[in-house]
């Protein structure tokens, strides 16, 4: 199984809960023996999307920004069967560390429109039977933020081609062991290593 793990935690030390969740995901991935490409996004140079759509028109599939770290992400995403997003829940959404990478994945989509569940979406440039896992962390339980986060992940799953999505939110002082236990129980991690 080929997986891509987007570690959207802030720089080390700023958010111990999120860093703990990242360690838990890494441990479960290791235990499954999946071929994983992990991206510590806070430490990566990823520039802001320019909204130019060059990746759909002039150089299809290639981002016009070539002097940063995003290409390695596109390369890994193209062949990944499992996508894992990890982020502190930020106003019910993703932290900028994660979002800066997601803003730049437009090249993995095609510009044209298709209909999914009655709505308009873009087809995948690299169609694969993918699954999505989103892991959010909240310093304190917050049902409203968690609800918004879950809805956002649902929208992302639709835009990724209506993939099966799992959302987990850890809050408070959840321990590493507890996180690993909950993650390990998820069907997302159930497939045998290939």
């Amino acid at each position: 199984m080929k997986a891509v793990f987007f570690k959207g935690s802030p720089p080390a030390g700023r958010d111990p809960l999120s860093n703990r969740a990242a360690a838990a995901v890494s441990a479960v991935l290791k235990s499954r023996g999946w071929e994983t490409k992990a991206f510590p996004l806070a430490a990566m140079d990823i520039k802001a999307c320019r909204g130019c759509f060059t990746c759909w028109t002039r150089t299809p599939g290639h981002c016009v920004i070539r002097d940063d770290d995003q290409e390695s992400i596109l390369r890994a995403w193209a062949g990944a069967e499992r996508i894992i997003l990890l982020t502190p829940v930020t106003f019910g959404g993703y932290a900028p560390e994660l979002k800066k990478a997601l803003d730049r994945v437009l090249p993995i989509l095609l510009p044209f429109f298709i209909r999914i569940q009655g709505e308009t979406h873009h087809p995948q440039r690299y169609p694969l039977p993918r699954r999505l896992l989103a892991v959010g962390t909240l310093k304190q339980e917050d049902a409203e933020s968690e609800g918004a986060f879950r809805r956002l992940v649902g929208r992302n799953a639709l835009n990724m081609g209506d993939v099966e999505a799992t959302t987990l939110v850890f809050s408070g002082d959840a321990s590493l062991a507890e996180m690993e236990r909950r993650l390990g129980q998820e069907p997302f991690f159930g497939a045998e290593a290939s």
Partner: peptide
């Protein structure tokens, strides 16, 4: 989108998969 691709001479590449078969793919 098709018109823009024609303008840039990239019509035949619109569905290209530059990272297929590379790392992770």
């Amino acid at each position: 989108w098709k018109k823009a691709a024609r303008k840039y001479g990239s019509s035949a590449k619109l569905f290209d998969r530059p990272y297929a078969g590379s790392e992770g793919a």
